[in-house]
């Protein structure tokens, strides 16, 4: 059976512009969303890394025996506490290596009296380990818990700003895309107005006319969305590659969490659906005005 060719609503007229305009918007939206998700992932990683872990600093005393006594007292107090799963000295060698990375080879660390760091793992449900810290401070008043949480709280402000900025860019991209799709749909309808009026008088059902327009919009916007996300993926890969050249570990740090791929994959789908619904509403409203 010969089919009447569908009207070329997508391939001519203003609709042709849809992919060209929507691809950059999908690109920006994807990058903003990816940025937001990366930051979320980083924060979650930090929190997970810190959950149930405490670091305590025992300042070095003037002589080694006193220092050793403080460390023993601290380990004893912690070992006796029910909230503590394990407590151990971060060995001098390990601490040296961590520090040496910071200060570089030029400085000879063995010349300084370094504080002793205790690595404490809490039992699940021990919260932030306040009770254990209290017990420790009673035994060794000089001990200084290192408040990693506090440090994270300070970072929180920065993280909030970055997340808000990313969401703001995302919202702007979506708003611009909606406005563009409305404008393009209206222009497209105007361009096809005489044909639409003809079909209308020939007894075309509204859903037939709207269907032709929404299919074209779906295709064109979906194309734009795919191109935008594709370009964003290429950008992401380029960034990952550059990070990897700096330090392969950074790539893991900044990698998107597995669940975060879904929202990104939804960008082209969202773009296409947005255009489809907009085109449908534009056409149905315009048809209503035609008697």
């Amino acid at each position: 059976m010969r089919r009447v060719r569908p009207l070329p609503l997508g391939r001519s007229g203003p609709n042709r512009l849809m992919p060209v305009i929507l691809a950059p918007m999908a690109y920006i939206a994807t990058l903003a969303l990816a940025g937001f998700l990366v930051v979320q992932g980083l924060v979650a990683d930090w929190r997970a890394g810190m959950d149930g872990v405490l670091t305590v600093e025992i300042p070095a005393a003037a002589d080694i025996p006193t220092t050793q006594a403080r460390v023993s007292a601290a380990l004893a107090a912690l070992g006796a506490h029910p909230d503590v799963a394990s407590a151990e000295v971060i060995t001098a060698e390990r601490a040296d290596r961590m520090l040496q990375d910071w200060v570089g080879d030029a400085v000879d660390l063995s010349a300084f009296p370094l504080p002793i760091l205790l690595d404490i793992r809490l039992v699940p449900g021990a919260g932030e380990g306040e009770a254990a810290v209290q017990a420790l401070l009673q035994a060794v008043p000089e001990a200084e818990p290192i408040r990693a949480e506090a440090w994270l709280e300070e970072l929180r402000g920065l993280v909030d700003v970055i997340e808000l900025a990313a969401l703001g860019v995302l919202a702007l991209a979506v708003a611009a895309a909606v406005a563009t799709v409305i404008a393009v749909s209206a222009a497209n309808f105007t361009a096809w107005r005489s044909v639409v009026e003809l079909l209308h008088v020939m007894g075309a059902e509204d859903r037939f006319v709207a269907g032709a327009f929404q299919r074209a919009a779906l295709r064109q916007a979906g194309l734009g969305g795919l191109v935008g996300v594709g370009l964003a993926a290429a950008t992401g890969l380029a960034v990952a590659w550059s990070l990897g050249r700096v330090d392969p570990l950074l790539v893991d740090q900044f990698a998107l969490p597995a669940w975060a791929w879904w929202p990104l994959a939804l960008v082209p789908v969202g773009t296409a659906l947005l255009a489809m619904v907009t085109a449908r509403l534009t056409v149905l409203l315009a048809l209503r005005r035609l008697t």
């Binding site: 010969r2 089919r3 009447v4 060719r5 070329p8 079909l199 020939m202 007894g203």
Partner: peptide, 16 residues
């Protein structure tokens, strides 16, 4: 309809 051939124009009412 300029995008359709003569026969497609005549088929259009059947299509609708």
């Amino acid at each position: 309809i300029g995008h359709l051939t003569a026969i497609e124009n005549v088929l259009l009412p059947l299509h609708l």
